[in-house]
């Protein structure tokens, strides 16, 4: 009985239109307050999603963004008990839609980037001191737990919320996002292809740094020569300075 009532109310809140039979079960004709719950639940979640994707929302046609949220509510709905997870759940739903006629071709990349910015700001994945040993090329590297590496088809990261860059240039392009350990600000770095492949390999956490660099050279067709080693040294030093590279596995 209780389960049934609770399921009915949640259906009323999330359905595209509340079913007449559900409203009758709640005696909604006598108590219009039921529809207030529907509006409050949807308003809070909509606000949370809109706040997470301001640029995506601005770049789509008409009311497409509102329709996606409607679809998300009706077909999936929030699962996590943490409100801040809702935009990520919405993104998974959004990405599963194969056709987005109301959106520009870079919409998926933009959505991924905007969510990743929030994810990096919030993430609690921190490398404990016991997980970080002295730096060695022969051991797997340990990276800042907030680091995310994205390969994008469009250079959506070159615009900002305040000044979106139009037109968005086609890629592909590699981007790293990380949380500055001192200020907690999210930083975005545009990477060369070889640095992107290298950093993605380093994130795996299994291969030694030497193996990661060999992999990056192989994938990008680069020759490991003196110039390459010098460039690698500079990149790794920069990653250390930024707090992206913390050391190696003990």
């Amino acid at each position: 009985m209780q389960a049934s009532y609770q399921q009915v109310l949640v259906r009323v809140c999330f359905a595209r239109e509340p079913a007449t039979v559900d409203l009758a079960l709640l005696e909604a004709e006598k108590q219009p307050g039921w529809l207030l719950y529907r509006r409050m639940v949807r308003a809070r979640l909509t606000q949370t999603i809109e706040h997470a994707f301001p640029r995506l929302r601005a770049c789509v046609k008409d009311d497409a963004f509102a329709v996606w949220i409607e679809d998300y509510f009706a077909q999936v709905g929030p699962k996590s008990v943490y409100l801040r997870d809702v935009p990520g759940e919405f993104l998974s739903f959004f990405e599963s839609d194969s056709e987005l006629p109301q959106a520009p071709p870079y919409a998926r990349d933009l959505a991924r980037l905007e969510w990743t910015e929030l994810d990096v700001a919030y993430t609690f994945e921190e490398a404990g001191v016991d997980r970080v040993g002295e730096f060695s090329m022969h051991k797997p590297p340990v990276l800042n737990g907030s680091l995310r590496v994205l390969q994008l088809q469009w250079a959506v990261h070159r615009g900002t919320r305040e000044s979106p860059m139009e037109p968005v240039e086609p890629g592909p392009v590699w981007v790293a996002l990380y949380r500055d350990p001192a200020s907690h600000d999210v930083r975005i770095l545009e990477l060369t292809q070889v640095t992107g492949v290298l950093l993605a390999a380093m994130q795996g956490g299994q291969q030694s740094l030497t193996q990661c660099t060999e992999h990056a050279a192989q994938v990008t067709g680069a020759t490991i020569d003196t110039a390459w080693v010098t460039a690698l040294t500079n990149v790794l030093a920069d990653f250390f300075d930024r707090g992206i590279l913390l050391g190696s596995s003990p």
């Binding site: 399921q7 809140c13 999330f14 409050m40 639940v41 809070r44 709905g77 929030p78 699962k79």
Partner: peptide, 10 residues
């Protein structure tokens, strides 16, 4: 309810 979190006090 039904695995869906309303994020409100129902």
């Amino acid at each position: 309810a039904s695995g869906t979190a309303a994020h409100d006090l129902l």
